[in-house]
Amino acid sequence: MIANLPDSPVLRRSLALAPALIIIGVFMLIPMVVMAIFSFLEAKSFGGVVWNFSGSAYIQLLYERMLDDSLRLSPGYLIIIARSFLLAFVAMVCCLIVGFPVAYFISRQPIQHRNMWVLLITIPFWTNQLVRTFAWIIILGRNGVIEAPFRFAGLLGADETLGLMYSDFAITVGLTYTFIPLMVLPIYASLEKLDFSLVEAAADLYSSRWEAFSKVIIPLAKPGIIAGCLLVFIPSLGAFIQPDLLGGGKKLMLGTLVQFQFSTARNWPFGSAIAMILLAFVMLFLILYARAARNAKAMDLH
């Protein structure tokens, strides 16, 4: 059997790579190509596509076709894209504000305890995301966990509410809660490698606590911070469970818009086009990240 293996090292190497290439090809490239092709076709009335080339899906993003067939610039979808970006950005900042101290705390624990803390961070991942999001309805909703003490203390009347649910606030809470482990873990990974004697050295050289933090810890944790921000920002951009369940589905987001096109609107090309736009933005951020990482490395070498 072994004798049957090819002798050429090139062939051997490509055989060894084959499983990875097949997985990337079948599960990533082919679906993406299908999506790209669909986005340039015409929609069939009951779902599916007609095999005619058409750029109308992309035109629809920017223009509204008036009843006399003229085109008018329409900001509708751009507003949806902008809103998705804003909420994803806010969620990312909230994750960073909450996640950084947590990661720092864990990295300062004795080595034998650290794994336990990391385990605690990942436990919520073991439960279905939908279930965890539903739990927030119980916490934020009318007569929920947060409102109960207010009502008990008489600060809220029987039929009054704090109005936490079905708002942008609720969406942000949901996104932050869901994606925070993705922020904590990469930051922890960079902080764990941080040589704490550098911070002590900074203190010896009369730096204030703030200076030691901003000029020593933050720069050294930067790769983790950037990775964490990307890992939170990208899925937040396409999230649709939180806007739907916690935001009350009152405002469309990119994720809900895509879902809507493939279900009730039955406009597959337009859904594919939005997905392609989303993909383009994600690619853009990844390229920016790769550049930042390369620059950081170049700085290290100097």
């Binding site: 309805i137 009318r142 007569n143 649910m165 739907d244 369940l245 009350g248 589905g249 009152k250």
Partner: peptide
């Protein structure tokens, strides 16, 4: 009507009505 609407959802109608949302 939209400013008066709390949620657009085809699930959990009974929950929202019963808890008074």
């Amino acid at each position: 009507q939209k400013p008066h609407v709390m949620a657009y959802s085809s699930e959990g109608m009974n929950d929202r009505l019963i808890n008074g949302d």
